[in-house]
Amino acid sequence: MKNSLRTIWISCILQMKLSFMRPMFQYSIIIDPIVFALITYMMFKDTSVSNFIAYVVLGTGMSSIWNSICFSSAGDIDRERAGGTLELIVSVPTNFKIIVFGKILGNTIFGSISLLITFLFIKLAFNAPMSIAEPVVFVIIFIITLISYIALASILAALITLSRNAVALKNCIGYPVIILSGMLFPMEILPIWTRPVSFILSPTWAVKLLRLSVNGIDDVNSFIFQLAILVFLTGIYYLLSNTFYTIIDKSIRIKGSLGRM
């Protein structure tokens, strides 16, 4: 256990070091979130949506974290493959899924920074008021949300390790999740047939809960119910990703797809 924690920690640190040196990464945690926040702020401004700052900051923030986690984590596996290090980290005595977990954790930390940047930008640039009704609940839900994001990202990273079409996958997973989980607009405006997909995406519930803790919780029972769903889905994701990593270990060696593209 102690060993695993250490591995998670060092691969998290390494990940942050590697990422930070990539100019593209600075784009995706600073420039992109700010411009994105600018666009949504301009769109929400002068509209009838109440407490729209919550939508803008939360929505763009959650989208940025999601993009950062899924895009970077997916991209990192891809980069390891291109750099020839994927073979190395898969065949060390340390469990591959622990290494990946550390990497995703690193990206999550960076992603949270971009939420902070978004918040500061809106605050400073537009001097917009923002209040959180239930700060403590908000922080707790936020942490659970991150844990859930990590689980989703590790499933994604597993799929990318298995497949060489990683670029395709990572490029097309960002917007669908943002749209379906209703990060910037309620998913109720989507056609009804998309509902089931929205329901099995944990970000859907996370965003609902976060919005409630910003706006105030009227119905505690329904809040707890939604929280239970979030926790349940997250648990399922972890089980799934665990299974995936067991499959990976066999399958990549049988297929021989670890090496260069």
Partner: peptide, 19 residues
């Protein structure tokens, strides 16, 4: 290939020692 170009030699060795 097979080493992290953006890290120093020492960092590479530390990382892999840990793994």
């Amino acid at each position: 290939r097979g080493i992290y170009w953006r890290l120093s030699a020492r960092d590479n060795l530390i990382y892999f020692s840990d793994l």
